[in-house]
Amino acid sequence: MADHADDGNDYDGDVFVYRGGRAPRHITHVRIDESVDVIKENAFNGCEDLVQVETHDGIRKVGQWAFLKCISLRQISLKHVVEIDGYAFYFCENLADVEFGDNLETIGERAFDGCCSLEHLKLPSIITIGMQAFWKCKALKDVEFSERLETIESNAFYGCDRLEGIAIPLKRDMFPLDWLHQKYDQFDGCDQLKTVDLVGGITKLLHRCTWKVGELKWKKKSIE
């Protein structure tokens, strides 16, 4: 019952083979065909029964709203993806395990907003994290950022109230100031954040940071 037959999509048993376009909303299992290097915007938007997505090494980008409100999806491998657009996994509330690889550079605005089952994030090559990208990911406990990280935008981790520790390379202008409220709000509402490991060279510390944290401890990791 593929409703985009012109895109060449079909079924392999119970598995929907995705070759482009908008997938049927009733699907449960998907295999991304090797011909696909970009998962287009809205591709699986609203596929509430989708539980499994088999990816491949050639996928470079996940488009805007691609998996929006796929509320049954629990795991996905994105280990060769370079860019994740805004709202790509918005309110995938049961998404607990996302494998990011060494190529990922950009996570867009609200890309994982409302993914309240994510517990750990390791972003080994990330450069830019967009506004509200991980807004209210309430199960998130720790985050490890890339030394290449350049920008974390406003409210990126707002309301991650179980977040206890981050490893981060502080660089000049990494945290854009919220000019309206005159504060740095990237980790506002992270009430359990107690440890920040500073990785690599440090050029500037924040003087107007208003993150709500407990007994915050700053550490510097020496990098050989």
Results as ranks from 00 to 15, higher is better:
Leu78Met: 10
Lys171Leu: 01
Gly58Cys: 07
Gln75Asp: 14
Cys137Glu: 11
Asn103Lys: 14
Gly114Arg: 02
Ala156His: 04
Ile126Thr: 07
Ile76Thr: 01
Ser117Arg: 13
Asp97Tyr: 04
Ile107Pro: 08
Gly159Asn: 01
Pro176Met: 00
Val51Thr: 15
Cys116Gly: 04
Glu119Lys: 14
Lys79Gln: 13
Thr151His: 10
Ser125Trp: 01
Asn103Trp: 08
Val81Ser: 01
Gln75Val: 04
Arg60Asp: 13
Ala156Tyr: 02
Trp135Thr: 08
Asp49Tyr: 12
Cys47Asn: 04
Ala133Ser: 15
Asp102Gly: 07
Asp113Asn: 14
Gly165Thr: 06
Gly58Ile: 03
Leu121Ile: 08
Gly46Tyr: 08
Asp97Glu: 15
Asp49Asn: 14
Tyr158Asp: 09
Glu99Ala: 11
Leu121Cys: 03
Val51Phe: 05
Ile168Val: 12
Lys138Phe: 08
Leu123Phe: 03
Tyr90Ala: 10
Val98Glu: 01
Lys61His: 10
Arg172Thr: 09
Ala66Ser: 12
Asn42Arg: 14
Ala133Asn: 02
Ile126Gly: 03
Arg162Gln: 14
Cys137Trp: 07
Leu50Ser: 00
Cys47Ser: 05
Gly108His: 06
Arg74Tyr: 00
Val51Leu: 04
Gln75His: 14
Ala139Pro: 08
Ile168Ser: 00
Lys122Cys: 10
Arg60Val: 05
Gln75Gly: 08
Glu41Cys: 11
Arg110Cys: 14
Ile59Lys: 05
Phe157Lys: 02
Glu41Ala: 13
Cys160Glu: 02
Ser77Lys: 08
Asp85Gln: 14
Gly101Thr: 05
Gly130Asn: 03
Gly101Asn: 11
Ser125Leu: 05
Ile84Thr: 09
Gly130Trp: 02
Arg110Pro: 02
Phe44Cys: 13
Leu123His: 00
Lys136Asp: 13
Ser125Pro: 02
Gln64Val: 08
Gly108Trp: 04
Phe157Tyr: 06
Asp97Ala: 05
Met174His: 01
Ile166Lys: 00
Glu147Asp: 13
Ser72Lys: 09
Ile59Ser: 01
